[in-house]
Nucleic acid binder design. Structure first.
Length: 523
RNA sequence: GGGCCGAUAGCUCAGCUGGUAGAGCACCGCCCUUUUAAGGCGGGUGUCGCGGGUUCGAAUCCCGCUCGGCUCACCA
């Protein structure tokens, strides 16, 4: 077997390098190479022939580009000259200005750019000729001293450089970057190379997730991992993906939620647990939905949904002030203000407010169903619960820009929640709406095994009527409840939407590195 | 799944009611040692998404398809 690391040995010192076509692989797909790709492959061959290692194993470096800019950009020309800072800095060539026997170019580390000045006189004629074999997109490591040009730009005066990697394709245009949304998502690496603000969004995403871990760890929660492949897709109402385990000859579902497993852990005495991981729902794709998405779910014993509201306010406000250093931020045309307390309104009152109907009208079920049918004539089988849903979606949701807790939605769509105190038809539950999106969903968990079983069975009846969005009957979970689930508050927060909010992105695909796209043959 | 919009050079885009395919950047050649969307002179590198049709002639008009965006539906 060929050791992949030795695929490209250094050219032998005694003669010209081996067959250029195998040394410098062409584009991975398609027989047609563009003129620019042929030129790049040829320059690559000549560079290797001149002694460059085509695939060096590592680069010594004293600084990163972003580190240099942060540390030295503010120094004056005189201060920088006096400091005599010698650097070895690797990066990707992003632009070149070639001027006879000297050139300026910028290298990037994906976050920041720094200019390099190379003169034949300083670096040597041979090195300068090698430099001219490099292209925009190539990686190299530059050794030299920092100075400022007469326009005041921090620049490395190149004494020598080492080739690091070849870019065999031309990069997108320097001024407009890469605009094509499809290409940006299919080749996210190109998006990251050309559009630095994209990298910032994903750095923010990373910061959000590590902040959340610190938040919960600091409150005595433990992080757990529960099955992604489940024999029953429970914990939410959604269509699952199905897969199959061969050895067990068993159909399994990719989880739509971790909820029932996390609550089994609370039964087992893990009083505070959280999980950050992917859920999978086999449903439509749009600007707020990707088939796989990331949620944090957390459960705390001896708490109810009012406690979870307080915790949620603390979480959102702390996250925002720690990561954005302020308590309000733009989202599209709006300014979102995260100040405690968030508005709290009951589901029914929100419906009344949005529809303009008096709250009492919501006791008149036929009237409400008729109203919903007029709002959405295309939706045929309208139950009372469904009607409330329609009114919420059409009349209420988009108006909820500032953070708002919607309290006590109907119990019939909350099969895992306790009933609200003294109100049998309402669930002890809230949803947090921000910028017209549902960001969080929490309830006082249903702990009564008999009622849980009855609710599951009721869902089973719904399913028989053809409603696919029902919760499966999970008797194993009921048995867990029979061992005793203490009063527990639980909540889920959609990480993708949370990042959309903080990063001011209107599409979930802008906060998922590789959103699901239909595969396509490369051109 | 329905509706609307889009796909033209490596990238960003123009191309009208049908008449030999264009610009900027990038690229190639020549000049240029503090430039920075460097500059000067010269060069267009293309399966106009794919497949049919209409026509003397199609990037352009018609039909079908693929992929994407927005939107509605479905759905947190």
């Amino acid at each position: 077997m060929t050791d992949p690391k030795n695929r490209n040995p250094l050219p032998s010192p005694s003669g010209p390098p081996a067959a250029p076509e195998t040394e410098a692989p062409g584009p991975a797909d398609g027989p047609q190479k563009s003129e620019q790709e042929l030129v790049r492959a040829d320059k690559y061959r000549r560079l290797i022939a001149a002694g460059a290692n085509p695939f060096p194993h590592k680069a010594e470096r004293t600084h990163s580009v972003v580190g240099l800019v942060g540390a030295y950009a503010a120094l004056s020309t005189e201060e920088l000259a006096a400091a005599r800072v010698r650097v070895v800095v690797p990066g990707r060539i992003m632009s070149v200005r070639l001027m006879g026997k000297a050139s300026f170019f910028h290298i990037s580390d994906g976050r920041s750019k720094i200019q390099v000045y190379i003169r034949a006189e300083k670096a040597g004629a041979e090195a300068y000729e090698r430099f001219k074999l490099l292209d925009i997109g190539d990686f190299l490591s530059v050794t030299g001293e920092l100075f400022k040009t007469k326009t005041g730009e921090l620049t490395v005066l190149c004494e020598s450089f080492t080739f690091m990697a070849k870019c065999l394709h031309p990069l997108p245009e320097k001024w407009h970057g890469l605009q094509d949304v499809e290409l940006r998502h299919r080749r996210r690496y190109l998006d990251l190379i050309m559009n630095p603000e994209v990298g910032e969004v994903f750095r923010l995403r990373s910061a959000v997730i590590s902040w959340l871990r610190r938040f919960f760890d600091g409150r005595g929660y433990i992080e757990v991992e529960t099955p992604m492949m489940q024999p029953l897709a429970g914990g939410a109402l959604a269509r699952p993906f199905v897969t199959h385990h061969n050895a067990l000859d068993l159909d399994l579902y990719l989880r739509i939620a971790p909820e029932l497993y996390l609550k089994r852990l609370v039964v087992g005495g893990m009083e505070k647990v959280y999980e950050i991981n992917r859920n999978f729902r086999n449903e439509g794709i749009d600007s707020e939905h990707n088939p796989e998405f990331t949620m944090i779910e957390f459960y705390e014993a001896y708490r109810d949904y009012h406690d979870m509201m307080d915790l949620t306010e603390e979480l959102f406000c702390g996250l925002c002030s720690d990561l954005l250093n302020k308590d309000e931020f733009p989202y599209g045309e709006h300014v979102i203000s995260l100040k405690r307390p968030f508005r709290r309104i009951k589901f029914r009152d929100a419906l009344a407010e949005g529809s303009g109907l008096p709250a009492a009208a919501f006791d008149d079920r036929p009237r409400i169903i008729k109203y919903a049918e007029e709002l959405a004539p295309e939706k045929k089988p309208v139950t009372y619960g469904k009607a409330l849903d329609i009114i919420f979606d059409k009349r209420v949701k988009e108006r909820l820009i500032q953070p708002t807790f919607i309290l006590n939605p109907p119990k019939e769509v909350s099969p895992l929640a306790k009933s609200a105190a003294g109100i049998s038809e309402e669930a002890a539950r809230f949803e947090l709406m921000v910028a017209g999106m549902e960001l969080a969903n929490a309830f006082s968990e249903l702990t009564d095994p008999a009622e849980q079983k009855a609710r599951f069975e009721q869902q089973g009846e719904e399913r028989k009527k053809g409603n696919e969005e029902t919760h499966p009957v999970d008797l194993d979970y009921v048995q867990a409840l029979e061992y005793g689930l203490p009063p527990t508050g639980g909540e889920g927060i959609g990480i993708d939407r949370l990042v959309m909010l903080l990063a001011d992105r209107r599409s979930i695909r802008e906060v998922i590195l590789f959103p699901l796209l239909r595969p396509r043959e490369e051109k």
